[in-house]
Amino acid sequence: MTTDAHVAAGEHPSLPTLGVDDLLRALDGGGVDRAVLGPVGRWLAVDNEDGNRTLASWCDAHPDRLAHWATVNPWYGDRAVAELRRAFAAGARGLKLAPSVQGFGLLSPLLEPVLDVAEEHGRPVYVVTGVPVASEPLQLAELALRRPGVTFVMGRSGRTDFSLDLMPALSTGPNLVAETAYNGASLIAGMVAALGADRVLFSSDVPFNDLAPELERVDRAGLAGPDRAAVLGGTAATLLGVAA
């Protein structure tokens, strides 16, 4: 069983995306059993509820294949808090944030109310990292220190150019989880060795990125059987409640 912990879904102004049927075909083609969809574009920036509801409907139609991250733009304040509660109640597995798209710095007090909701519900928070000023790996590490009760996923691994920051940031605390997308086999092996396989999630970022080469990089990492199984599904099962 292979679970892809971040697959991009939505309408993007610059890059093509896929509807649910084409996404499922892409997953079939890559041999991925389950995927966790993450909103992008308009759904991520402004029309959060629209995106969250649409993704939930895709997941409801394919409960054995799909789960999803919800997003709320923290600038919506009380409305963001209410929408996140609604989305979690409707089945969203975690909160996705993208500081450079949503317009905030990771250490802004603006985040606190939505992080409170994630913590209350015991749901992880996926953060797109790598854009200077707004979402650097060490900013997420500092946030993880401030919020030890929330688990954060280091989305996009600080690409690019924070490759030197990545491991010091991920090693900051046990509530930081790595993802494999955009990382080479040697770094995937290094992350598993340093953090443990239960803190490394396989993700592809399809359809922006390619599924087969990203799976091949995990294969080339030469992980021991149980570690490989964790990265490709077990960790997602534990963290996101997606069946392994």
Partner: peptide, 16 residues
Amino acid sequence: FGDPDLRRHRLSVHRA
């Protein structure tokens, strides 16, 4: 630079 597997990986993307 970095991962020893990088060249093979990038070429596979370029070929696509």
